[in-house]
Design a protein around this nucleic acid. Sequence first.
DNA 1: CTGAAAGCGCTTACAG
DNA 2: CTGAAAGCGCTTACAG
Lengths: 345, 345
Amino acid sequence: MAGPPRLTPDAAPAPGQTAGGRATIIDVAAAAGVSRQTVTRAMNGMPGISAATKERVLAAATQLHYRPSRFGRGLVTGGEHQLGLVVNDLRNPYTPQLAAAVVRLAAEQGWNVMLADVDLASDADRMVAALGAQTDVVIGYFGSRRERWNEVLGTVPMVELDPASEPPTGAVWIDPSDSIEVLADHLVATGVRHPVVLDNSEPDEPSARGLLMLDALRRRGYLPEIVHAAHGTAECGAEETERLLGRRRRLDAILAFNDVMALGVLSACRRAGVDVPGDVRVVGVDGLPLGTLVTPTLTTLAVDLDAVAAEALELALGMLAGELPRQGAAVQRTVRHRLLLRESA
Amino acid sequence: MAGPPRLTPDAAPAPGQTAGGRATIIDVAAAAGVSRQTVTRAMNGMPGISAATKERVLAAATQLHYRPSRFGRGLVTGGEHQLGLVVNDLRNPYTPQLAAAVVRLAAEQGWNVMLADVDLASDADRMVAALGAQTDVVIGYFGSRRERWNEVLGTVPMVELDPASEPPTGAVWIDPSDSIEVLADHLVATGVRHPVVLDNSEPDEPSARGLLMLDALRRRGYLPEIVHAAHGTAECGAEETERLLGRRRRLDAILAFNDVMALGVLSACRRAGVDVPGDVRVVGVDGLPLGTLVTPTLTTLAVDLDAVAAEALELALGMLAGELPRQGAAVQRTVRHRLLLRESA
DNA sequence: CTGAAAGCGCTTACAG
DNA sequence: CTGAAAGCGCTTACAG
């Protein structure tokens, strides 16, 4: 016989679910008629529990769909082993190359890597905030949003990769200037007369990289032309190249902003019947392994991404450990490109 | 004057650090002379705190290198929003393509993605365990280790991608069989006489995919040859192709195990002066965008990785919500390849 | 083999 | 504007 309604809800959890949503260790303990401690022993395969009890506990856990909370556990077991990596577009071949380097190095030191692709994100700010909340330190590409994200991340140490200008946080610069000089010498030596810089930027606002290229060429007596592509993709590279070749103006070298664009250049040249490197020499930047899959293979200014990852991790872990300052006098490192001669130039 | 040594350590925390390692909210509260609650308000930019107090708290926090514990916070704010993704090698172009699809879809639903590359890992088991500890659900490629990892993951729901055989957990099959029939018909229609299957497997143990190809060809009256490459890389694809072309045996089509190998095939053909598709038709599997960067562009059996990601996420989230069974009668979905005709076949 | 107690670091109501 | 109390879910000693 049911009594009168009471003020406190007396609805017992239906089988297979608990009142407040997700089952906790207490629910399982109650269901199995044991203490929380015994549940822990059963769930984690610890010694000091009879087979029968263990079985009963596990059955109750399964029945209740119990999964231990990672927060409850983390709070007591600790764990400063989570690294956040902010990248721009995983579909750009450069990105996984970098991510692979970071993941491998991090794994060696027992760190897991959480990835945020802010290009794929619907709400990048929220995503970065969430990353910061789950992670002990964040490294990556921040672009123009670095100040904002620095605020969003609050106390989580932050290391910027390839900053556009003096950053407020730790940073690893990726510097092509030396290799551009070497490349320019190489172009002179191979008899190039009319080089074109295929930049990835807004018109009239060359990228830093584009400016370095122009400058190195000018100092060697060239009158280099610069072309601005809106996107750093192969399609854009191919399109601009078609346009360049269509003009029938002299042109015997194309220096692309990155390898992916340079692959587009190569492809457009092949289609137009332009011989590379015979008629036109082509150079990319990044040093992607991808560049060896095409014919001719792509000459490029290569970055050692393992070195970038190593510097970034060292910086990040140092900041975490408190050895390095977190802000203000930001700690910085530099990794330099080097000319990787393959077949296209 | 220092008193005699005591049994309990009386060393006050030196400025800038606390006794037990990392500073907690209590340390900051004590240093600033306020309550924990006030520290929370200051750290999280909440209202109801005077500017002066806030400043004092933040100064203390900075001084002590205080970072809120994500576990302490998570315990009270909750958060079932972390997805683990297990992949094999980020440097294989297929992997980032898949990862991008998962990350994007997950982000749309407010989920973060933590990545474990078990190929780059020194200790894959430990890495998967760590992934499980930080994550609410795990999806990915498990290969032959799926039973072990299923144990390691304990109660964390698991969805296997492209299983080799009937899996014990949720799974998304990626099924090429239909598209292989379509491809075989296409080869017949274009007059192919001597196709070769370039498999990625141990000798005498063709892959399931290789077997499907052989079978479809045989049913159409072909006597297909099969070649086994140890690695699914472009280098391996190129090597095997050189060997094949060197034999001077009839050969007018190569069906590669995947796109990356097929790119190696194309490259070897180009170097050998073999016209594709005139002399030899070449087909890959996966449908990587990469296949459009080469000349000729690569015909392929394409997978819709967005669909794979969508099915996997739906399965995973369903298992989490308890709508779908976690084990036993595992829930499965299927995504099929389709023939993507480009220039190479 | 099992359990009662304490505590991990934080936030959320609730008082004042 | 500020603080005392309770509690999030788990594990780690410590008793028995």
